[in-house]
């Protein structure tokens, strides 16, 4: 394993480069190429950022849960970090999803939080779950046990996501009296292309952030090890 980076093209750098190319392309498409939506007009452009951010959040949580399962299977502490870092980024992207979703609700429905939207409500439950993951992680002493407990709780989220989607749909009569129909569901070719480009840009940004943060965490561990050695040899 080569750990010196320098100007060499490592994975984090390549992901950042891909994001650096895709992001301006996506922004160009969103503001100069794609036409205004027939129903929602200019404001529909929020969709091209809000939905990719939300999907990136889910992708990060999925990656975190997958590595949690792999950790429980193998007991490799490196996988604990690869489970924690995407969860951490997922909460950042998740906060952004909630805020941009709230703005979109204001534009679409005239209110900052629309309880009739199944997507917003599901996301809220799952976001609360991942915040709780952090409470657990921060209140247990670092070490093998924290890794194990975090992994178990992260895996519970895999059960919670479908359960919440179902509950929010079944509970529509409780949350909101009228059935909600999604207006932004059908996209034509240009819209789909723009959307996919924005999604690719957002995902590559997340991958770059993930790899950089993972390297930072590894560096942290190495410094701690060095410190122990330096103090021990005194």
């Amino acid at each position: 394993m080569n750990t010196t980076s320098g100007a060499r093209l490592d994975r984090a750098t390549s992901a950042a480069l891909v994001a650096a190319v895709l992001m301006p392309v996506a922004l160009g498409l969103i503001f100069f190429y794609v036409p205004n939506d027939v129903d929602q007009g200019f404001s529909q452009r929020i969709f091209y950022f809000h939905v990719p951010i939300a999907m990136t959040t889910y992708a990060l949580f999925a990656w975190g849960a997958l590595n949690a399962a792999r950790y429980l299977w193998t007991g490799d502490m490196g996988l604990d970090l690869r489970s924690y870092v995407p969860m951490h980024l997922g909460v950042i992207f998740g906060t952004l999803t909630l805020v941009t979703g709230s703005i979109w609700a204001k534009v679409s429905w005239g209110t900052w939080w629309y309880w009739g939207s199944t997507e917003l409500n599901t996301f809220l439950i799952i976001f609360l779950f991942y915040c709780a993951y952090f409470m657990l992680r921060f209140s247990v002493e670092p070490g093998e046990r924290r890794a194990r407990y975090s992994a178990v709780y992260a895996l519970l989220g895999v059960g919670l996501i479908p359960i919440s989607v179902l509950a929010v749909h079944l509970g529509q009569d409780v949350i909101h009296p009228v059935t909600f129909t999604d207006r932004g569901a059908n996209m034509d070719g240009t819209m789909l292309f723009t959307f996919l480009m924005a999604l690719a840009a957002m995902l590559s940004l997340a991958v770059a952030m993930y790899l950089v943060e993972l390297r930072g965490k590894r560096l942290d561990e190495q410094v701690t090890r060095l410190r122990r050695l330096a103090e021990g040899t005194r």
Binding site: N36, F42, S43, F49, L96, T100, W104
Partner: peptide, 29 residues
């Protein structure tokens, strides 16, 4: 067709995404 207030909302969404990325750089620093 473009409602002036909506432009602000759209701008707010894209500005927020940008701010979060910047904040991330600051935290890394």
């Amino acid at each position: 067709m473009i409602r002036e207030t909506y432009v602000h909302y759209v701008a707010a969404v894209y500005a927020l995404a940008w701010l979060v990325t910047l904040a991330y750089v600051v935290i890394l620093n």
